Amino acid sequence: MLFALSLDLIALGIILGIMISMGMALTMSIVVLIAISGKLASFNIAQKNKTAILVEHSIETFAGAALATIGLLLLFANI
């Protein structure tokens, strides 16, 4: 986007900025929809089976640890 602006291609730079924003919004919306549907599916399974509750908590713990690990890796990559 900044490259297009540096070449005095204002319209192209604005279009690129809008497209990048739309792509990020679409990606985040899809991730949220997948997370919500997975949560609903795990709740439906947990009501039928008590060991599913343990599995659900394990998945949540693993997901949190994975997210923290990725964040730390990205942080240390920039240091």
Rank of each mutant, 00 (worst) to 15 (best):
I36T: 11
L40V: 09
A66I: 08
E60I: 12
A63K: 07
T61I: 15
S21D: 15
M24K: 05
G64D: 06
S42A: 15
Q47H: 11
G13C: 02
L33V: 13
G23K: 02
I59Q: 10
A11P: 00
V55N: 04
V55S: 08
V55R: 05
L2I: 10
I34S: 04
V31Y: 02
I45K: 05
A63Q: 11
V32P: 01
T51L: 10
L9K: 13
L26M: 11
F3E: 12
L74Y: 15
N44D: 14
N49K: 10
A25T: 14
L40R: 14
A4F: 10
I70L: 15
E60G: 07
S6F: 03
V55E: 01
L67K: 07
S37K: 09
S21I: 07
T61G: 06
A65D: 04
G71K: 03
M28G: 00
T61H: 04
V55C: 03
H57R: 15
S21F: 13
L74D: 10
L73Y: 11
L74G: 11
L5F: 10
F3W: 04
F43M: 09
G23V: 02
I15R: 01
I79R: 14
S21T: 14
I36W: 09
I59S: 08
I36Y: 10
G38C: 04
G64M: 06
G71I: 09
G38T: 07
F62R: 10
I10S: 02
